[in-house]
Each structure stands twice: as C-alpha cells, then as structure tokens.
Design a protein around this nucleic acid. Sequence first.
DNA 1: TGCTCGGTGCGAACACTGTACGCATGACGG
DNA 2: CCGTCATGCGTACAGTGTTCGCACCGAGCA
Lengths: 242, 242
Amino acid sequence: MPAEMKPTESVWTRPRPRQREQLTREQIVAAAIELLDAEGVEALSMRKLGTRLNAAATSLYRHVANKDELIELVVDEIYGELAPPPATAERARWRPAVAGIAAELRAMTLRHPWIAPEIGQTGLVHVGPNAVRMTSGLLAQFEAAGFPADEKDQAAGTLMAYVIGIATTEAAYLSAIARSGRTEREWVAELRPAFDEASREHPGLREGSSAQQDTHPRRIRDDAFDYGLARVLDGLAARLDA
Amino acid sequence: MPAEMKPTESVWTRPRPRQREQLTREQIVAAAIELLDAEGVEALSMRKLGTRLNAAATSLYRHVANKDELIELVVDEIYGELAPPPATAERARWRPAVAGIAAELRAMTLRHPWIAPEIGQTGLVHVGPNAVRMTSGLLAQFEAAGFPADEKDQAAGTLMAYVIGIATTEAAYLSAIARSGRTEREWVAELRPAFDEASREHPGLREGSSAQQDTHPRRIRDDAFDYGLARVLDGLAARLDA
DNA sequence: TGCTCGGTGCGAACACTGTACGCATGACGG
DNA sequence: CCGTCATGCGTACAGTGTTCGCACCGAGCA
C-alpha cells in the first residue's frame, strides 16, 4: 500500500492503480534474460518480449534505443552475476585468484549459452560497468602477480582469449543439444556412429574420446577446461619467472 | 512491353539461347563469399545473393536446402584456404608446425572477419571436409610431439580455444571499424578520450596501451597474438617435458 | 518425329522481423 | 483548471527466410 501523496479519496475511486504499468528499463532487461534463458537467442523478438511484459512491442523503444542496445544491456547485466573481483592477493597467490575468475567466466557462459556469440562479438571492448569491473579486477591480479605494466594487458588478453574460445564452443555445443531436446549423453551416443565413420578416413581423429566413452560428458568438458587453463597459466607463470 | 501471351515468332521474342544460366552450388557459394567479404554478414540475404547471380532468390533453394546450410558450405570453403597440413615433422619440431597452423587460422579469420561468429558457433564440431582435414592435421602434430593418445585432444583443444578466442575478438573489432568507415588508426585516435575517461575510474586499466600510442595498431595486435601463442605453447611444452 | 517427364527458374504469397511516426491519454506543475 | 510532457500503442513500411505451384527447357523413350 503506497498511500504516498493524497490518501483523501478512497482507493476505489482513484484511477485504477494497475492502469499505467510503467515499464522500466530494468524490467525489460530482466524479461529479456528470462526469455533468452528459456528459448534461446533466435526467440528474442521485440514483439514477444512486449507481450511477455503485457506491453506492445513499440513501447519498449521508450526505454531502449534499439535491439542492439538492449542486448548490450543484457550482456552487462549478466556480467553482474560475477562475484566482485577478489582483493588483489599477495604476489604468490595470483594463480588461484586468476583461475577463479576464469572458472567463473566459464560458468557464467554455460548458465546463459546464448551470451557466447555476443561476448565474443565485442570481446574485451565491452564498456558496460560490470564488464569493466571484471576486466579491471583481472588486470589488477596480473599486476599484483608481477607482470610489468606493458605486459599485463597481453597476459590478461591471453587468458581471456582462452576462456572466451573454449566457453564459446562449449556454449554452442550445449545450445545445439538443447535445441535437439535430448540430453547430452543421448546426443553423444547418437552421434558416435557418424563420428566413428569420420574417424575411419582420418585415423587418429578423436581416438582419445573413444577411450572416455563411459565418463560423463560433463566431466569430460570440465577436465578439458581445467587442462587448458592449467597449461595457459603454466605458460604465464614461466614468463614470470624469467 | 510485356508481350506475354503469344510470342508468335521473331528472334527477339524467342527465349535467348543464354536463357538457362544453370546455377551451380559452387557458384552460389563463391558469390556468397564475395558478398560477405564486401558487405559483411548482415548484408547477406537470399534475395541480394540472387540478384548478384542474375537469379531470383527462390532459385537458390534448388541447390541449397536453406540459409544455414549455405553458411556451412561457405565456412568449409574458407577452411579450404588453409595450406594442406604440414607433413608431421620429427618430434622436436612440433612447435613451429603447430604455431604455423595457428597463425594461418588467425590470418584466415582476419581475411574474412564475418566468419568468426560462425566458426565459434560450431567450434570443432565442424564436419565439413576441409575443417576435418585441418583438425586432423593438428592432432597429428600433437601426436608426433609426444602427447599420449588420451591427452592430445585436450592439448589441441587448448590451442584451438586460444586461437578462436583471440581471432574472434579481433575479427569483431575489425568488423566494427569497417562498418564505421574509418581506418584503424583513426578509430583508436577517436576513441582514446572515452577510453582515458573510463581508465580514470578504474586506474590500471589499459595503461599499457597508452604507452604504445605511437605503434601501429596492426603491429600491436600481431604482438599480442604472438605473445599469447608463445605462452600457450610454453605451457604445453612444459607438460611434454614432465 | 512426337511426347512425356524430371529438373530448373521464378512470381506470388505467408509469416515474421526491427523500427519510425503520430495519436491518445494520463500524471503533474503552474 | 489547464497546458505540458512523458509514456503506451496502433499502424505502417521495408525487409527477411521459405513454401508452393506454375512455366518451361532438354533429354529419353515410343
């Protein structure tokens, strides 16, 4: 019960409170994320988003310049899911800090697979406040690690490229599975014959994955991410020692 | 003058011998690549592609199932630009071979920036013949390098993730510049004030790039790629020694 | 030679999309 | 009480990918 200005008149005589629904940019962004999570990126249209908010499509344009700007807002909102950057630890403990950020970025992307193309599209040039906070936090870690000022950009860029690359392909893969309506295990089981077919022509292709036939695919992906992350951080650490 | 009813006689009314242009799938793919290179991905529509081939949009569907399939064909055609995989060198020389493949992949992406989203979208699951050849060649190199069978997939995946990640962000950046109609130098010069503004709030953000203000941006990107590639390969090499 | 028939191009149409424009209306300050 | 301004929305426009049925050409068979 608001009752803010003039409670004189009865609630009933007052113009119906539900009249002006009063859209806000925050509502629009939130509804867009719901829709994207539920139905994927190709299902996001201004009209559908409007009806989901009990509004006409064109009403959205009062709060958002166009669809591209809406997506920018959405992406930065997702960046907001990341934990605030860890306090820049002492020099020796940069590695777990950086690894944590990387893992969080990957988890964020897998929670919202539709974000992968957009995030790669703008890369690090994303200028939303949440994205900037994340980038800034990451750079601070590399600085604390001891990378010279003219090198920490490149070091952070290396890590980011790895994370974006692997998360993008993972997200695309998961999106394809989601569209097919199957589970990940069913999917790989169904595709195995075609895969073996292709492997016959190119021996050595993916023979490793045949060995892991019984491992849960989710586990395989996690291991692959950890493996690559470890190698990248090894390479950066080696540079630091030199 | 339509003259549609009765084309009685006369050479002029008779359908010209060059009538049936006979579209082929190869022509369509080639024209699509031309159009994509010239005007970017959002300019590719079936109608525009049709007119470029002196054909109606709907005629294309006789040779290609739908637009998505066309794009798959286009992407694999681009993969065909890569040099054939180098003969698997002796164990010690795996590193230059792998670095060469990585550089070629990046160059390919920068030649056709519009390919970046598509390439990330399907990742390594691309099943076109040219893409498979490249993947297979890369894996062979890692095998020759001495990675055990159950690890070479992960090693190759690490490298590919890095290359895809950095090439995607670079391509997106170049596409944005191309759309703006400016040169890369003009672009960075124009954005510098806004950049410095953002840096004030987050000190330490990109201070490295200010130092390189006079270096050609192209050179900066090349250096960044080489730096990251060296780190990733260092990390993989270290694993090999253990 | 004549006739059918499969492959090909294409015009029209459908169901969508993002978005510009102008009008209505409701809330608020004078 | 009245004007002003912000907001919602109906209409419309220029596109999009794709389907369908028709027109026609060249080849194969009678």
